[in-house]
Design a protein around this nucleic acid. Structure first.
Lengths: 114, 114
DNA sequence: CCTATCGTCAACCGATAGGTTGAATATGGA
DNA sequence: TCCATATTCAACCTATCGGTTGACGATAGG
């Protein structure tokens, strides 16, 4: 384990990558489908997915010609532990979390996957 | 509030900056004292402190000719909430946190401030 | 077999990150 | 007043980041 905090935090620093993680929270997705809502090339998304994989935040499995991306939330645990060391933050507040997810969407659009 | 997740995570992605935060956990410090244990110029540390300040992770107050740096752990709350949205991580485990702090020190040395 | 689709690779680009050095700007103290 | 200390500024350098485009390999399907 122990994908370094360096790579985990660096991966999380990019809004595109955070948005991808949010999308994968709903479901596993193929690379092409991950890319669809973004106004950027498939190659760029492919690179982002590589970064997320390197950080351990997602895993990718190729079935046929489709590569499926799965969220690996456990990779966040180390980083979470590190952050918690700086203070007791209020217990998990999913409403606040959802506000974040929405505030990071571009157009005001909501649904990422269809 | 709402220093962006971009800036907070980007600030946390650098090991020097995480180590500085760990040092400030023990006590407020002057810039020069923050810089002392690092093998890097004072100007470089000053830049790191600027990044941490911009992210809201620390505050700096000038008293006399000395600029004091104080940890602002609240800035981590938003990021923490975001991460918690991906999973319920085990309740605050300070032992694990201390292992991180130590594993990020360079030589095996422990005490940062004296 | 031929072709369309899925995804990556390679080369390139501009912008930013993280470091250096040397000069500049306070401020404190003798 | 003069000097040392504390910190930042400005210019510079190199490496990496995030994006592009076009070619490529692999697989699915008619």
């Amino acid at each position: 384990m122990a994908h370094s905090l360096d790579t985990v935090f660096a991966a999380l620093a990019d809004p595109t990558r955070r948005r991808i993680l949010g999308m994968l929270l709903e479901d596993d997705m193929a690379v092409t489908d991950v890319a669809e809502p973004f106004e950027m090339s498939l190659a760029a998304i492919s690179k982002h997915l590589t970064v997320l994989t390197a950080a351990g935040l997602i895993s990718q499995e190729k079935r046929g010609r489709v590569k499926w991306c799965r969220l690996e939330p456990d990779a966040l645990r180390d980083a979470s532990v590190w952050m918690q060391g700086f203070g007791q933050f209020e217990p998990v507040n999913l409403d606040a979390f959802e506000r974040f997810l929405e505030s990071e969407l571009p157009g005001g659009e909501k649904g990422p996957s269809e």
